[in-house]
């Protein structure tokens, strides 16, 4: 048992961080604010780096790596706040032709039993750039061609880096997988999305700590005040516990004999989403008035955390799976 990152995993993370620093520095990511289409150049670079295909076997064009490697990679993507349907496309790589190469970006929607009289429309991100939309239910997966979805663009989405489309209901499509396929797809999606969220939670923690060290009031750094310092400590605790959970979930997918991967994936997604949201909130608070400005990117992490969490489903549902399987 050695639950530290292996040398290979570390160099994978380093490589991914360098790629993100080169391709997705914050100025470049922010240049996409308000966009309606994916930055295809950036997307292709990720595809070439193997972000979507890395878990596929060599002969399928993959790198034959495991979910643990995918988690390490997605943590880095989350740190950089790379936009687009990354986790869904990655999770769909073995199921949807063209996903692994990035040629068909894939969206993912969860179908839950309809609540009679629920008048809420469904908002999906990046629909205009998708090559396929997967709808996951307990009993199977359906594939919907984007042309058949008929969504209407919604201007002014909460996250300036996630363009939205409005659907009147979760659409129907062609079955492409049964219950077990749906379970595995959703599990893998949760794990990599949770890794992305953990990366976000780590960055907002680092941003807050960095600011608390240099911002001076009352002739001293604000990070010397316990009221601020304890917020920062809590941010690290949330990020590190969620990170351990995500890594354990990823390893459990790869090594099914060590635990219940479905339970681990749901728990990890729950904690990662909570950490990403709570740390972004705290990051805004530690930055004081500056944290409420458009200039400081803390709000982008908060908004993305909310956008991603909505796709995971409510905390109650994630927790419910853990409660039943604990």
């Amino acid at each position: 048992m050695d639950f530290e990152l292996s040398d290979d995993e570390r160099s994978l993370a380093d490589g991914m961080r360098r790629l993100c620093e080169g391709r997705f520095p914050m100025e470049r990511v922010r240049a996409g604010e308000g966009r309606r289409a994916l930055d295809t150049e950036g997307w292709s670079a990720l595809a070439e780096a193997g972000v979507f295909s890395l878990r596929l076997a060599d002969e399928e064009g993959g790198a034959d790596l495991g979910t643990a490697a995918a988690a390490v990679v997605f943590e880095e993507l989350g740190r950089a706040l790379v936009p687009g349907p990354l986790a869904a496309t990655h999770a769909a790589a073995g199921l949807v032709k063209g996903a692994a190469t990035g040629d068909r970006p894939v969206g993912l929607l969860r179908r839950t039993p309809p609540v009679p009289g629920d008048p809420r429309p469904v908002l999906v991100g990046d629909l205009g750039s998708l090559g396929a939309l997967l709808v996951v239910a307990d009993d199977g997966v359906e594939l919907v061609e984007p042309d058949a979805v008929g969504g209407a663009p919604v201007e002014g989405g909460l996250d300036p880096l996630t363009p939205l489309w409005r659907l009147e209901a979760v659409p129907r499509g062609t079955p492409v997988g049964d219950g077990p396929v749906a379970e595995a797809l959703w599990r893998d999606f949760l794990v990599v999305e949770a890794a992305f969220l953990v990366g976000m939670a780590a960055v907002t923690s680092e941003m807050a700590v960095g600011y608390a060290k240099v911002r001076r009031q009352f002739d001293r750094p604000i990070g010397s005040f316990q009221a601020v310092k304890h917020m920062c400590a809590d941010m690290l605790v949330r990020a590190e516990t969620a990170r351990a959970a995500v890594h354990a979930a990823a390893v459990t997918v790869d090594q099914p004999d060590v635990g219940d991967a479905v339970r681990a994936a749901h728990g990890a997604a729950l904690l990662a989403a909570q950490a990403a949201e709570a740390n972004a909130r705290a990051c805004i608070q530690v930055h004081g008035g500056m944290g409420f400005t458009w200039e400081v990117p803390a709000h982008l992490y908060l908004k993305r955390a909310i956008v991603l969490w909505r796709a995971l489903g409510p905390a109650t549902r994630l927790a419910d799976v853990v409660a039943e399987r604990f």
């Binding site: 639950f3 351990a244 681990a264 905390a315 994630l318 927790a319 419910d320 409660a323 604990f326």
Partner: peptide, 22 residues
């Protein structure tokens, strides 16, 4: 159920963190 699942997720995470620290 929500509180039970939340606690379960956190306990699993702390078990993971234990193995990481070890």
């Amino acid at each position: 159920r929500h509180r039970t699942g939340q606690l379960g997720a956190e306990l699993d995470a702390l078990w993971a963190l234990t193995r990481r620290n070890v």
